[in-house]
Design a protein around this nucleic acid. Sequence first.
DNA 1: CTGAAAGCGCTAACAC
DNA 2: GTGTTAGCGCTTTCAG
Lengths: 339, 339
Amino acid sequence: MKRLTLEEIGQIAGVSRSTVSRVINDHPNIRPAVRQRVEDVIRQTGYQPNSAARSLASSQSRVFGLVMPSILQSAFADPYYPLVIQAISHACNQHDYTPGLFLFQTPEEEEKVSQRIVASGLIDGLIITADTINSTFVSKIQQYDIPFVQIGRPPASNAAAISYVDVDNEAGAYLAASHLVQLGYRRIGQLATAHNTAGADRDAGFRHALADRGLEVDEALVKVSDFSEAGGYQAMQTLLSRQPEAVFAQSDAIALGAVRAIRDRGLNVPQDIAVVGFDDMPLAANADPPLTTVRQPINRTGMLAVETLIDIVRTTPEPARHIVLPVELVIRASSGAVN
Amino acid sequence: MKRLTLEEIGQIAGVSRSTVSRVINDHPNIRPAVRQRVEDVIRQTGYQPNSAARSLASSQSRVFGLVMPSILQSAFADPYYPLVIQAISHACNQHDYTPGLFLFQTPEEEEKVSQRIVASGLIDGLIITADTINSTFVSKIQQYDIPFVQIGRPPASNAAAISYVDVDNEAGAYLAASHLVQLGYRRIGQLATAHNTAGADRDAGFRHALADRGLEVDEALVKVSDFSEAGGYQAMQTLLSRQPEAVFAQSDAIALGAVRAIRDRGLNVPQDIAVVGFDDMPLAANADPPLTTVRQPINRTGMLAVETLIDIVRTTPEPARHIVLPVELVIRASSGAVN
DNA sequence: CTGAAAGCGCTAACAC
DNA sequence: GTGTTAGCGCTTTCAG
């Protein structure tokens, strides 16, 4: 079952190698009858063009790199990433691209591998996610002429020049906090994060919501956490002594940790303290109590990142594309709005 | 900053293209002085060989496919997979391989994409994980001559011919169940799974442990779950009416769901019901109560899968490699053995 | 609308 | 030890 070549397909179909190539690449100006004949042969033989030859001749690999710079310990632990990855994989499959995975656990690994992928021509473009505020990866990558799109807004300093797909974190946090205010809570805390712009935007939305309702933010009620359940648990423990009536957690994992901390103190959610999360991960609905949270369209985020990158690669990188997806508040029991 | 070619590097270093190629590929029989000179030029220019040209000439892409056939909904939700993926990514980075990601959510996607990867020459070998008992992916892939290693034992019918890396699931479950027996529990339940051979092996270990201690397995105390927290919660709910004294859950996520179900019934862990999990995920230690569980070496599993595949690709596929890694019991509070 | 022919940048015989 | 040369299988002018 030896691998066939273009030439051989051409022989079988009675045309030249070029014609077969044109059929495969959907060129116009092929006589329908010929196209038909060639397509039949391709189907019958199960022919697949050799991808190395293709990229060499066309300097296009149809491989994208999915890079997560500086995975601290297991930032991967947040179920958000498996979900974006799934979405990206799916979109790549649909568009006949192959997603290559590049996780960097140390600066050395990042340096060595990014060197390789940037210059070897293996990759047509990059999707960058899980970037942190003080990572230098993006600015390094900008020096090469490899197209990329980022998932999540880049820091304001160079956001204008960078294509990205983000969700409206600020609006989401605004919705969440407003919801709590409207329910009558006044001492509203926040379990914040400090790794990326999503955290900053959610913080801004939280503050705007309170300000718009004439409430002042009590800084003693704002605690910084990482994006994990354990982080939420710890942060909530320190927050408990301040006796908040409600708390906005910047992710569902954090919210779940907070709920656990509240319970361990012998208090109830939402009766004693209301909790709102962010993300609407699958586990939010099954949590106890079911979590009021801000739903972000993770699947669309991943799909759009791929499609935007394809667009950039096929057409022109200028101007940078900026996509911000809407989010919505999902009201469940943990905020005390239902039953 | 145009991309250089072998020829140009050769010109700068005053040697032929072949000599540069030899240096890059670590061939013997190069005069040290020449090697030095060439290496210097390569370093100074930041030259990276074009990977398409390389694969075309050598028919080796240095790309591995990481495939997860038939991702049911979000089998990905189990934190196990992010961890293996991280390990595989890391090992690939070390060995200058690129991991391509292939997640299949539908049979059509599987069919279409696997067709492409198998015949296009894009990929040197496959690492298959998350395969389910009644998946046909592996048997399809066997018909091509693409090397692969599986993570997790294949069904006995063709395990002998397939290279795989697995952990000793049976021994692990045996340890877990024996631990419960030794603590004096008699009515010991199991939250089992039915998707893969890991579940079957853990079931076998559980049964052997009870049998070896002269206990009979009460089939009413064995409930089938999927690998999720929610699944564990549900399965435990149905198990509760049978009043088990202890329960062995086939994964930590299941165990956590079980703990939640037990609590919701107003009972305590481990006082009323002891719980043991499997995996020792990061969250097991932070759980409340900390989870007694069987630790499996996920990181080594991923690394060895990569290294085994490299070995197979470089040498000969025969005979199939079978690696089974040891596991260990980690005793914490949930089984009632401490405090 | 189709074919011939010239590479893409590298590896690997084969010479010397 | 090192250079020369012939491809790897495809895309893409250029003719016709």
